[in-house]
Structures are given as C-alpha cells and as structure tokens.
Design a protein around this nucleic acid. Structure first.
Lengths: 188, 188, 188, 188
DNA sequence: CATGAATGAGACTTCATTCAT
DNA sequence: CATGAATGAAGTCTCATTCAT
C-alpha cells in the first residue's frame, strides 16, 4: 500500500520532469527529489531511467483507457459511438496535458519496445471493432479498421499539439467541429 | 571542401544514431566513429551534442523544403496545388525514412528552440499562403490558415509513422486516397 | 534458544558465502537470505559485517580446538604426541573444508585484530609447550618454539590448500607421509 | 610510451594500496590519486578494480620470475640448483615485501581465476622439471613433482609471512637453515 | 586542421544501516 | 523480537570536453 504509493509518486514526478526537461536532462536524483523519496527507493522500484519511462507509458495508457471507456455503451448510431469515444480521448488529453505531451514525445522513442506498445494498446482495440462495423456498413473509405483508427488518432494528436502550443481555449463547439473533421476525412 | 565533407559525415552519422538509439544513448565518441572522424573534429564543427541535433534539424528541413518546392508553380487550381505540395511532402519522407523519424522524434523536443523552429520553417509558410487563399474562396472549414496547415501536417506525420511501422508498400493510388482524406477533412 | 539458533544460522551462512564469493562481494542482504532471517535480525546479533567475520573466526577456532584436543593426553613419546595433534588438525580441516578455506583466507586479513587472534589462538599455545619440550631434548633445529610451530602450521596450510584445489583423495598413508615430512623438516 | 607509463603508475599505486588497506577498503579514486592520474585514466586502462588486481598479479609473477631465473644455469648438482632457485625466491620476496604480501593475500582470492593463475605460473613450471629429475634419481619422497613444488612453496610462503610479521632480520645463515629444512622435508 | 588520450564533473548504482510496523 | 522498505552516503563508472601532439 505504502509501497504502491511511493511507486506512484515516482512515476508522477518522472512524468512531469521528462515532459518539461526531456529524457536526457532529467537525473534520477531529480526524480527522487520531486517525488519526495530517496534515490534508493527509486532503484527499489525501477531498474533504470528507461524502465521508469516505460512504466509511465503503460500507466498513462491504462489511465487514458479507463477514462475513455468509462460509461461507454455499444448503443446508438455508429456515428454517435464514434463521437463519444473520440470526444473522450480529446477531453482526457485536454484535462491531462502532461500525459498528452509525454504520450506524444515518446510515441516514436526507441525506448518503448514493441512489447510495451502491445501491452499498452490492448484496450484500444475496441476502436478497431467500431471501425470494422463501419466498414461493413460502407460508411468509410476503403482502408483497414486499424489504419482508419491510427489515422484518426494521429490527426487528433497533431491537432492537440498545436492547440496546446497556442494555449487556445477549446470549447464544446470547437471539439464538435474537430470531430466533424475527423469523421469527414474517413467518410466514404 | 574537405571540411564541409567531414561536417556532413558527422550530421549523417548523428541522424542515423539518434534515430536508432535515441538522443540520450548516443555518445560523441559513437558519432565520431560512425562518421570516421576524430572526436576533436566533431568539436571543431559543433559546440555540443545539442547543437548537432539542431543542425541536423535545420539541414533536414532545408533538404525537405528543396525537395517539396522543386518545380512548384503557383498555377492550376488551388486543389491541384494542395495535392502537388502535400504529395511532395509525402514522397520526400517515404524516400527519406531516417529523416522522417528524426523529424517526428524531435518535433516536440525541448532541444529545439523557437528560433530554430522559425529558421527551419520559413519556407513552409508558402503553405499558409495557399490555405489563406482557400479560406478567401470559402473552400475550408473556419479555422486560421496556420491551424489548417498544422492539422494537415500532423495528419500526414501520424499516417506516415504507422505506414513505416507496418512497412506497408505505398503506391500512387494509396497516396491519392490519402490526399483525398486530407482535403475532405478540412473542406467546408 | 531460538535467538541462539538464528545467530548460528547467520554465522553458518556467512561462512559459506564469504568462502565462495569473497568478503567484499557478500552483502548483508545475501547473508540474511541464506540464513532465512530478516536483515534486521542480522543487526540485532552483530554490529557490522566485520563483526560477523570476527565471530565466525572465533567460533571456528573454538570448534577446531575442541576437535584437535579431544582425547589428547600428554603421554607417550613426544614424536607420538606431535603426530597425534597435527593429524587431528589435518583431519579437522579435511572434514571441514569450508572452515579451512575461511581460516586460510582471513588469516592475514586486517579485519582480524591482534586481540581476536589472541583470543582465538589461546588453546593452541599447548603446541608451543610441546615444541619447547622438544627443543629441551635437542630434537629440533635451533629456532624458537613459536617459530617451529608456525613453520609446521603454514606447511600444513599450504599442503591442504592444494590438496583441496586438486580434490585429491587423502588416505591414512598420505597423511602419515605428510606428518613425516613435517617432522623431518624441523628435526635436528 | 606515455600510455604504458600511466598504466604502470596505476598498477604500482594499486599494489601499495591493496596491501596496506585491503581490497575492499581501496577506492578507484584513491588509486587514481596515488598514481597521479585522473579517475577516467584508470578506467581507460582497466575495466574494474578486479581487473587491476589481476593485472598486478600477472605483472608481479612476471617480475618474480625474471628475478628468480636470472643467471640460472642447469648446471651443478640438483641440490645446488634447488638451493639456487629457492634462495632467489626467498630473496626476491625479502627485497619486495609489498609484492610478497600482495602475492600472499590474493593467492587464494576468488578474483584470480584459473586462467589468470595459469598465465602467471607458466614460468614456474621449470621448478617441476627440477623436481621430476630428483624423483628420477630417487632423491625425494614419493609425490608428484607438482605437489613437491607446491609443498616447498607454501612452506616458504608461510615462513616468510611470520618472518615479516615479526620483523626478524634474516641473514645468510638463516636462509641456509631454512633451505635445509625445505630440503629435509621432501628428502627420501 | 585532425586527432584521441586524458580528465573530472556528475551521472548511475549499491548496500550498510535504520526504524516504523 | 523480527522484519524489510526506505534511505543516502559513498562507491563505480561514463562521457562531454579539452589540449598537447
């Protein structure tokens, strides 16, 4: 219990520092200080700085998944479900800017192995089921479900990046417009 | 001349190593070895590891720009010009996968300052002129030219990332389809 | 009682680990694990790693002494007594290889203070009495009793070391021959 | 040339420090300071503290061998040759007390692998040839040449140890007596 | 200009020791 | 009394940077 708490503190501290300073500029000592634990405690919980990054990634994806799929029901029109899920993704990142920047920064990093990505991405396969359904109904352009999903996701990623860069206020209307752009881009 | 050659060798070596191993895992000694020069020579050309990253970025953007705008004429319909330029971007990255991965990995890195980004991005402002024209003609959804450009760009970035991840073969039809998706997403 | 058991377990674990891995490679955590006790328990019984070594030494010398002098009677010829005692030393070490190697490895260690050596060696002064008697009878070469004893002891130590190194089987005849060598070397 | 010099300085510093303080008490920083080189230089030449110990051992045995076999001629009686060689061994150690203590302290250390021992001991196989000759002439007790050599060597080691411990002055007569003891112990 | 041996600051990492449970 | 998570001092080791050659 206490053990888990310290582990969480370390991951939280790492998230903040990696995003603001970049991986190579952050030392274990800094992470320990930010987490209010001893350096030894960091090493009791993680074998290296890289493992901290990997565990932050896994934890972040789990948290994102929990947020996105909370209250999700496979009901209503496919377009409604599409909007529901992607809006949740957008809102999650808007509410968790650190997590978003971390996610963006390390998505293509060599530190994250194929295995790590697979573990972290399992939950998001539900998106693919939705796209597959849409393909069955000839709603979408002729790509695989996986590719359609990745397309929408990278679109959202890029959009959020500059939205945050420019510190723009994002209201419901803006989100609605953006969801419309996402839908239009893949619509048949 | 010889001097310039060594500088180029170092940038090329850095590009390869940073992409495959990540910034923090690459040492100057490694870069020097890969470039077949001495460590001292690296320091005659660059002040630090960070400067190497910055110079790779600038050189990469210049090369990308040269490729993209070669033979570009402001003629034909706006949609044609749109397709021409973005297709060139796509083809550049498909032909230069290392450059693409470098570009993706460091786009959000704290190492690249605003100044560096401005220097490297100057050429790409021509895109904004195109989008501004489109907005005048009410072709696009109601966003600023800059945002529309960034939207398309991040879409392409994300798409290329997984295209390379999956080592998919990309033929002309696929590129055409993708350009259509980009256009549809921002069309009014 | 339970307390004493744990103490013994720790000393036994330490003996094994110090011999097989060397002092500096053994951690308190390892000793605790090998002894099936907690780290804190080690510290309830000993103040430091060095003290564990010292206590193993003292315990080992006491055990060796008990073995060597059991059934020893100051009767018979001096040569017989000489053979009896040194044969017991040899057999003790042959039956306790770990103890032997520990003894050999730490004999010259700075961890063992003069006081520790004196405590542990008290019993073995009986050897010196025997040598003194031999000197009175002009049986030995002209050295002090102490030096004659140390000479024989280091000879035996060295011999046992390579005997174990080579895993040689040592029968009664071999032991008898060796005792003869020891006697011949110091005989006047 | 300069490179080799630094390496020698480090080995010399290590020898002194290991003997006076014991392996685990010596830090790389201390060795570097004693050798008047930077810590990094130590690591350019050796991979670890253990490797320093191994290289000191090899270098010491080479130096010992050079000393012992200098001017050695396979002439004269076997007993004379025996005395010549072992006297050289004794004198080498008397003149190089640091080397002797190092040799004694690490002879049984787990740091020195079988390979290291084999490399370091090659030269001393000449002793075995001498013993083999003696066995042919029925001069010695019935043991293998190797064992006879090790017996004499460990005897000498032990004797020198307490000779140094007690800071006894060792004159030619004492050495002669001791060589006699060595010879007597193995004589048939 | 080119080189790479030398350096030491500062990173990583271990582990003896403490102390709340 | 027994435990082992937590700690941080002190070690090992790396590597950016310098500078004599």
């Amino acid at each position: 219990m206490y053990f888990i708490l310290k582990r969480e503190q370390i991951l939280k501290a790492g998230l903040k520092l990696f995003v603001t300073q970049g991986l190579h500029a952050v030392t274990i000592a800094q992470i320990a200080a930010e987490a209010n634990v001893g350096i030894g405690t960091v090493y009791r919980n993680f074998n290296s700085k890289e493992e901290i990054v990997q565990q932050i990634w896994i934890r972040q994806k789990a948290s994102e998944s929990a947020y996105v799929f909370k209250n999700y029901k496979k009901q209503g029109s496919l377009h409604d479900q599409f909007n529901f899920l992607w809006e949740r993704v957008i809102r999650y990142f808007l509410e968790h800017p650190l997590e978003f920047q971390f996610s963006y920064q390390f998505a293509a990093s060599p530190i994250l192995t194929k295995e790590i990505h697979e573990i972290a991405m399992t939950d998001f396969l539900k998106f693919d089921e939705l796209y597959a359904l849409g393909l069955d109904q000839n709603l979408f352009k002729p790509l695989t479900a996986r590719r359609l999903r990745l397309f929408t996701f990278s679109t959202i990623n890029g959009w959020l990046l500059w939205a945050m860069d420019e510190k723009m206020d994002i209201d419901d209307a803006t989100i609605a417009l953006f969801l419309q752009m996402c839908w239009d881009s893949i619509s048949a």
